[in-house]
Amino acid sequence: MRLLNKILYYILTKSIGLYINLMSFLFPEKSAQLAYRFFTEPREGKLDPNKIPGILSEAHAEAVSFGNQTIQTYTWKGNEHRILLVHGWESNASRWERIIVQLRQSGSTIIALDGPAQGLSSGREFNIPEYARYVDTIMQKFNPKFLIGHSMGGATCIFYHYTYKNPMLEKMVILGAPSEFMIVLNNYKKMLSLNKKVSRLLEKRITERFNIDPNEFSGDRFASDFTLKGLIAHDVDDLVVSFNEGKKIAQAWKSAEFIETKGLGHSLHDDHLNQRIYRFLFEAD
């Protein structure tokens, strides 16, 4: 069954890529628009308001206004020490269940959010600059001192601190995050077998959308000037984001500690790792 699903997924992605490539000869701008849409719209991660996961139903839920959109937040109330959790691509705040159980032992207030177009948050498009604006809105509202991000959420945390330079932020934990945006983009192009014309137009659209060259969107470059304390964890068996991506960020971020794990894959769900994160956040330096 798993092999069949892989075959069907391969056929679907190649068929989409072929359609976009053919379109590029007659309607190049529309082909780039479609390629961008498939690149930025999550297909998973939405939540049914009538079937909220148990860990989220224990929290105080609040929808925070963000322009004409809403950011869904969840707060497990505690003391004045606040921690913000930022999930990754095609996910939602419930992915933090195991670490929330660990962190609540500290008595801290824990806040998690659903990213753009995921969970119960509004929107259709997920991208790091927009997600960083979400994070900034929630940081201003709750003023947490600790930030934990996984995968694209981790990359968002790095971009957030690089862009906004929040002086209140004391420590940051980055789990399984990519460093080079171009690696993510090139993997997407390869998956769909996009031709050079569509690839060029897609990069142009991204540059115009975010006012930044995709080749300059680099987590290790962003982190190179960080002075706050960091903890970076990456698994050698990560099949989604290369282990070398985590190492690059750690090498550039001079005040960060790097944890190499094995056998945890991309999710990094592990009680032992969560304990190390707990010690990093709450034990005296």
Rank of each mutant, 00 (worst) to 15 (best):
I249K: 09
V173G: 11
F27P: 14
K204E: 14
H161C: 00
L47W: 11
N215K: 15
K51V: 02
F146W: 00
N215W: 05
M168P: 03
M168S: 06
I206Q: 15
I99M: 12
L103A: 08
I99Y: 08
H234D: 10
N79T: 03
E245K: 13
S255V: 00
E180H: 14
T73V: 03
C157I: 00
Q275M: 03
W253R: 15
N92T: 06
T40E: 13
L18A: 14
Y278M: 02
P116W: 00
N143F: 02
R95F: 01
R2V: 01
P167C: 11
G107M: 06
I259A: 13
N68T: 13
G119D: 09
N215F: 07
V101H: 15
R104P: 10
L18D: 02
G230R: 07
F258C: 12
N215T: 12
A233H: 04
K248M: 11
M182L: 04
K254M: 01
F258S: 10
T70W: 01
Y160G: 08
D271I: 04
V236C: 12
Y74N: 10
R209H: 12
Y131H: 07
L26V: 04
V86Y: 04
A132D: 06
K204H: 13
K165G: 07
E97C: 09
N127S: 14
K254L: 10
I277R: 06
L3C: 04
N186P: 13
S193M: 10
I212H: 15
E170V: 00
L239N: 14
Q140C: 08
I259K: 14
T227D: 14
D237F: 05
I183R: 15
G176E: 02
L147E: 01
A233L: 05
S121W: 03
V64D: 13
L4G: 12
S106C: 05
T227F: 04
W96T: 02
K262M: 03
L185K: 10
Q33E: 14
I83V: 10
V64E: 06
I83M: 06
E41F: 00
I111F: 09
L231D: 06
V241W: 02
D114W: 08
E170G: 15
F66T: 05
A35F: 04
S218G: 01
G17N: 02
A117P: 05
I20R: 11
P144R: 01
G149S: 11
P116F: 00
D48Y: 00
A59M: 07
S151N: 01
N68V: 02
L12R: 15
N50E: 12
I174F: 09
